[in-house]
């Protein structure tokens, strides 16, 4: 188990190094999973991702803000069972307000510059996950939680 500052650094490094996350939203009957390009804010309180408004995930989010996201370091080798780490993020999503759009889109595009056209399209929504908890799994079965308290 790691000290809280070590844990925070480990999680931050993973958030910075990984480009994609699996997003789970709540559908009518069953959960729905999709892959999204994300970025974490410096204070780790928010994750940002973008989606067009016609998607299932967007429809789901309008009904239920609660999401889980999974970010991991797997390489699709058996060594992953030993070496890969995964973070499950729990939080609530909201669409970014106009006055914050420019700043947060900047942070997002800084990590994903190739997505400029996509993000700037009027049909795309930039969304913010208000993170409640990070759950970090390493060495296959070791699990440690980081709760955001304010």
């Amino acid at each position: 188990m790691q000290d809280i500052d070590q844990l925070r650094v480990t999680i931050k490094q993973m958030l910075d190094s990984q480009r994609l996350a699996v997003l789970a939203t709540q559908g009518e009957v069953r959960p729905y999973g999709s892959l999204v390009a994300f970025v974490a804010t410096e204070d780790m309180k928010n994750l940002l991702f973008a989606t067009t408004r016609a998607t299932r995930k967007y429809a789901n989010l309008l009904k239920n803000r609660g999401v889980a996201m999974v970010i991991d370091t797997r390489t699709n080798q058996t060594a992953d069972f030993a070496d890969a780490a995964a973070i499950t993020v729990l939080g609530d999503v909201e669409e970014i307000a106009d006055h914050e759009q420019q700043e947060l889109a900047g942070i997002y595009l800084n990590k994903h510059p190739y997505l400029r056209e996509f993000v700037e399209s009027p049909t795309t929504a930039l969304l913010r996950v208000d993170v409640k908890t990070y759950i970090m799994v390493s060495r296959f079965q070791n699990v440690q939680e980081l709760h955001l308290t304010s």
Binding site: I4, K45, Q141, L146, H147, L148, S150
Partner: peptide
């Protein structure tokens, strides 16, 4: 701002 907890 943070609290950590061993889960498993």
């Amino acid at each position: 701002g943070f609290r950590s907890k061993a889960r498993q």
